[in-house]
Amino acid sequence: MSEEARRFEDVDFGDEIPESFADVRLATVHVFTEASGMTFSRFNDHQAARKQGMPGAVVPGIMSQGIFAAKIHEWAPGCEVEKLDTVFRAPLIADTEVRVRGVVTDMDDGARTVEMDLTMLNEAGETPVIGTALVRLA
């Protein structure tokens, strides 16, 4: 990771966060659920989740929201994520391949902020989690 801050002047409308994978291994979900108190079996146990009608253990919605924030920080170290809106359209399943994308959709010169569209894609190419962010840059 580059520690150099991404400045507002370095960014242009349409710039993209390079596509990358989200770490949704069950072991990582455990770390999150222990810290967040979301220790329900549907998040932590594939078999228990299947018994509840899910395809496997579900990644908590707010963990996917946190992954979006982490990807923004990787792209623009030192930035401030002022607002992050996330829509949970379908369950995201642990131990699957999840790709994260982001694109700058608007810029405010005065506030030095950018708006971004964010997307998570599952192995079927569907978008179970989408979001928008307002990010203040250096």
Partner: peptide, 17 residues
């Protein structure tokens, strides 16, 4: 400790978190 573990679970890479 809770803040740090929560950040780790989200895949954060920045030391301030």
């Amino acid at each position: 400790e809770t803040l740090a573990n929560y950040a780790r679970g989200c895949g954060e890479t920045e030391a301030r978190f």
